[in-house]
Computed example of a mutant assay.
Amino acid sequence: MPEPTLAAAVEVVLLDLDGTVYAGGRPVPGAAPAVAACREAGVDVRFVTNNASLPPEDVAEHLGRVDVPARPDEVRTSSQAGALLVREACGEGARVLAVGGPGVAGALTDAGLVPVTSADDAPVAVLQGFGPRVGWAELTEAAYAVRAGALWVATNTDATLPRERGPAIGNGSLVAAVRNATGAVPRVAGKPEAPLLLAAAEGRPALVVGDRLDTDVAGGHAAGLPTLWVSTGVDVAATVVAAPPEHRPTHLGADLGALLEPPAAVDRDEDGPAVTWASGGARVRVEDDVLTAGDGGTPLELLRALCAAAWERADAGRPVDVPAEVLGRLAPLDAR
């Protein structure tokens, strides 16, 4: 009997968006057929995003434009998770200062809360999310409310946003302005914290999928969920090899097609003082604290073997240097 695929081993896959399903206005190759195959296999799909500026309806519409049909109820945003945190702390009907794009105020309304726009409206909480038009006036209102004792919840703290021209200022940079002005520290709803992912999973066995180690993978760790890193976005393969424990994914894939494959095994073999890790045709060997790699295997197989070796050695307090020429063989993954 064939081994279950990564997707078939869970009830729901939690997919990051930018860098995983699409890149700006372009679809990521292989994403649409992988999502369709998950649905055909009876696995639920949730699109989970730290981007708080847009309501789920707009996110679903954008997904349709990149050939991934989606319903609004399949989308989970950090604004929604933040609104739930506020409601749990303050109760339905609470007045909340909404800072960010229309997705922030919409999430508050949907959660039974009352969004307001000024600290003079006596809000009991502030929900701060990204919005391209957020400026000094909105940030100052947030600072006034936080200083007055309002609960402060940030949808996410991503310092930058991926854009076609390069990294742009993200919500974390705007949150830093309010923090600098008040000395307060917000509660955070989005990745890498657990609330957004736990809300999206709804108590079911889930797999977190994304391209960023410090948000998607770290968020999976915080939520106690397995993770799949894909090489289609921000983090390059060499960064994965050097990742600290909290940023290490459970599984490695080139793209979302990895969801349709069984988990890849890495075999470990000891021969006296030497240890070899093997994945497919790739072989990585460490002897006398020197790492070498054989010529075989695909870049992804080599990455799996390198991660197994480097992580084991780092955890044992005996890290090894990976030669630049070996890391260079991972470059085809980064060019995707």
Rank of each mutant, 00 (worst) to 15 (best):
R163P: 00
G233Q: 13
V146G: 11
A70P: 07
G93Q: 05
P55G: 09
G64S: 10
V66W: 07
R165F: 06
D110Q: 14
R71I: 00
L303C: 01
P332Y: 08
A32Y: 10
L259T: 13
D73Y: 02
L207N: 13
D58G: 03
H251N: 10
V266W: 06
A242E: 14
G328D: 07
T298C: 03
C307R: 14
A36R: 14
G112S: 10
G253T: 07
T49M: 12
V234Y: 12
A243H: 07
H247C: 09
T239A: 15
L300W: 02
P186T: 05
R248P: 06
P273H: 13
G183K: 04
P69T: 05
P115L: 03
I169P: 14
V230I: 07
R46V: 10
V153K: 02
A177C: 14
A105L: 03
G297T: 05
A201T: 12
V275Y: 04
W229H: 15
G135N: 01
G30W: 05
A119R: 04
A184R: 13
V86D: 04
E138G: 00
V234F: 13
E74A: 06
V59Q: 04
A83Q: 04
W136L: 14
V96M: 08
P27Y: 01
G210K: 05
T182C: 05
G203P: 14
L197W: 05
Y22V: 11
G172E: 08
L85H: 02
E3S: 14
A143Q: 04
C90Q: 14
D334V: 08
L256I: 09
R95L: 04
A189W: 04
A168Y: 06
L259A: 13
H251W: 15
A159P: 00
D295F: 00
R65S: 15
T298R: 10
V59A: 07
E287Y: 09
P319Q: 06
V104I: 03
G100Q: 00
G317S: 10
G135F: 02
G328M: 08
W152I: 09
V178M: 06
P244W: 08
T140A: 12
M1V: 13
G129R: 02
L327M: 04
T298N: 02
R329T: 06
L174R: 09
V116M: 08
G129W: 04
P2H: 09
D110I: 00
V188I: 13
G93Y: 04
A105I: 02
L302E: 05
V326D: 06
D271S: 15
D315Q: 12
V134K: 01
R76T: 12
R165D: 15
R26I: 00
A314P: 00
G170E: 10
V45Y: 04
D18F: 04
D289Q: 13
G297D: 05
G149M: 11
A176V: 03
L228C: 11
A199G: 11
A37D: 11
G166D: 10
L139I: 02
V75K: 05
V10L: 08
P332G: 07
G190F: 02
S79D: 02
D214F: 02
V13P: 12
A41M: 07
P323V: 07
P4H: 08
W152A: 10
G253D: 07
E270Q: 15
S231A: 15
G112Y: 07
G149W: 11
G203Q: 13
G131K: 04
